[in-house]
């Protein structure tokens, strides 16, 4: 009698979880796909219904072709921004963490303390615009990359420092005594061993930088500088009635994060848990 009752309860829990989580987390995404497949007249009804005719591919094409293939420019800009920032974050952050963890002296704790400020305090936006103008790099990709490096480096360095602690000091000391230069030790001994941490940092920061809206809004304005999340934003102001295209736009800019998600799901999750590491 007892096991049967137990399995009935188990079944009930499973069904309940399925229904609740599906409604809450999956239905909005299905809605996005349905809306992106409709004609603009049909989409204006905002209903959760199947399209009379599936126009998904055509809507995607329309969005990509819109405004002289502006979407390509946006995806290229976002990709360049993401790749450049993440590369610098990894190099700067791991160099920093390497010395800070190995020395562990007064300078190291001062330097780490400085970076910790960046984890807590949000950026000062208008003064940043001002200094970018002073440096003549306002509205440039270079300026935006440097801002993103500064803003995302703290988190990356924390992760690297924690991971450095697990790499035996004997390794670098041995190669130093063998005559390797510090740079050589770093690149050929330390960096390969930091690989899991690097993957974590690359995956989490690229998703964040690719989807970042606020940074480009303030520091990278201008039509030629458009990035993926901003295509959507300018879409609302121009085409608030063509919901089908708006949702097709949502689909297009979500493809890259989706790919990252599919390939790096485990690293993403462990990266998010890395947020649990405190300095």
């Amino acid at each position: 009698m007892k096991p049967k009752k137990c399995s009935l309860a188990t079944l009930a829990v499973n069904i309940l979880v399925f229904v609740v989580l599906t409604i809450i987390f999956i239905v909005p995404f299905i809605y996005i796909l349905l809306m992106a497949s409709k004609s603009s007249k049909e989409a204006a009804l905002l209903a959760f219904s199947l399209p009379a005719k599936n126009l998904f591919i055509r809507n995607l094409m329309d969005v990509i072709a819109y405004g002289n293939f502006r979407m390509f420019r946006a995806l290229i800009n976002s990709t360049v921004l993401t790749v450049a920032s993440v590369a610098l974050i990894v190099v700067f952050g791991s160099l920093f963490a390497f010395v800070a963890q190995r020395k562990n002296d007064r300078v190291a704790s001062l330097a780490m303390g400085l970076l910790l400020i960046g984890l807590m305090i949000p950026p000062a936006v208008v003064p940043t615009v001002f200094w970018l103008q002073k440096l003549k790099i306002y509205k440039t990709m270079f300026g935006m990359v440097m801002i993103d490096v500064a803003l995302f480096m703290s988190f990356a360095t924390m992760i690297f420092r924690t991971s450095m602690a697990g790499i035996p000091r004997d390794l670098d000391e041995a190669s130093f005594i063998d005559g390797a230069t510090p740079l050589r030790i770093f690149f050929s001994v330390i960096l390969p061993l930091l690989r899991p941490a690097i993957v974590t940092v690359v995956v989490t920061s690229s998703v964040n930088i690719f989807n970042d809206f606020v940074g480009p809004l303030y520091f990278l304005p201008g039509a030629k500088n458009i990035t993926a999340p901003l295509t959507l934003y300018s879409f609302i102001s121009q085409f608030s009635t063509q919901w089908n295209l708006l949702f097709a736009n949502v689909v297009v800019i979500s493809i890259i994060p989706l790919i990252i998600f599919i390939f790096f799901q485990n690293q993403l999750v462990s990266g998010m848990m890395g947020g649990a590491i405190k300095g």
Partner: peptide, 26 residues
């Protein structure tokens, strides 16, 4: 000497110029 302080430099420089200075000047 295997851990030279200039390894901090790229990170610290970027962080100071693009985060600390704007924050303090705010």
């Amino acid at each position: 000497a295997a851990y030279p302080n200039w390894f901090y430099l790229p990170g610290v420089l970027t962080f100071v110029v693009f985060f600390i200075i704007p924050t303090v000047s705010a």
